[in-house]
Write a protein that binds this DNA or RNA. Sequence first.
DNA 1: CTATGTGCAAATCTTTTGCAGGCTA
DNA 2: TAGCCTGCAAAAGATTTGCACATAG
Lengths: 146, 146
Amino acid sequence: MIVDFAPQTEQSQSCATQWLSQAGLRPTRQRLTLAALVMGDGQNRHVTAEGLYAAALECGEKVSLATVYNTLRAFRDADLLNEITVDASRSYFDTRTDDHPHFFWEETQTLSDAPSEELEFRRLPATPDGCEVARVDVVIRLRRAS
Amino acid sequence: MIVDFAPQTEQSQSCATQWLSQAGLRPTRQRLTLAALVMGDGQNRHVTAEGLYAAALECGEKVSLATVYNTLRAFRDADLLNEITVDASRSYFDTRTDDHPHFFWEETQTLSDAPSEELEFRRLPATPDGCEVARVDVVIRLRRAS
DNA sequence: CTATGTGCAAATCTTTTGCAGGCTA
DNA sequence: TAGCCTGCAAAAGATTTGCACATAG
C-alpha cells in the first residue's frame, strides 16, 4: 500500500502535542511522531497499522508494530480517529471523525472520502423499537469502468 | 452467536442439489448439508463460518472447519452468497445476493436485513472518472436507546 | 479413470497481551 | 517517585493452504 505522509516539521510536531494533551494522552516521542504523520498537514488520511508503521520506519523513527497498533487504538478511543470497516481483513483509521461516506477502490484496496455533501437520503429504514442509530456507514465500492 | 437453522428435510436437500448444480458445483455430501442449512427454508440468513460449522456439527454432520470456510468461499464465488463486511474481525455471509442495507446491533454483534424498500437516496456522490459503482454498502449500526 | 473436493494440521496474517524496563508529570 | 508507555515476544483469532486420500461424473 502506498501512503503519502507529510514530512515532519516543527510545526506539525507542536500541533501534535496539542492534539495529544487535548485528548489526555501523554506526548511521548512515538506518539508525537505517529500523530504528526497521521494528521500532519491537516489533510484527511486513511491509514492502516502496517502503512503507518512503514511510514514511521521510513522517516527514521524507531517504533514497534505493537506500539503502532496500541497507539492507533488509543487515538481511536480518544476520538481522534475513526475506525472504518471496509475489508474484513484490515482496519482503516480515518482522520475525519464525523459520519461520512467513503469510496473504496476494490482494485487497489484504497479508501478515500466521498464528498459528504453529495450524499443525501430520501428515506432511511425505520429503526426497530428500543434502538437508536449509532452511525450509518456508507461505502461506495468502485471498480474500473468496463 | 445463536443461529437458528431449519431442520434438514428431503425437500431442502433436493432444493440444495439444484442450487449447487446450477452454480456448477459438485453436490457432495458436505456441500449439500451446508447448502441446506444455509438456504434451508428460503428465509434470508446471515451466517459466519463458525456459526455454520457449529450448526453442521449439531445436526450430526461430519465436516471440518476448513471445509466450511472453503465451501462458503465457493458459494460466494458462485454468487450463491454475498459477503458482508461489518466487523473487521469476522466475515458474514448473506443469502440475499442483491445490494441491500443492513442493521448491525453493536451489543450482540448481530446482523440483519433492513427493509431495502425503505432506503432511498436523494443524491449519491459523483463517481470519479473511469470508475463505476460496484456496490453501495449501507450498514445502520444500532445501539440500545439511551 | 480423472478431476475435484475433503480433512487435518500447519501456516499466515492481523491484532492483542504480558511483562520487564523506560520515561513523563 | 508513581504511573503510564514502550518493546519484544508470544498468544490469540480468523482464515487459508499443502498434501494424501476419497469421491463424483
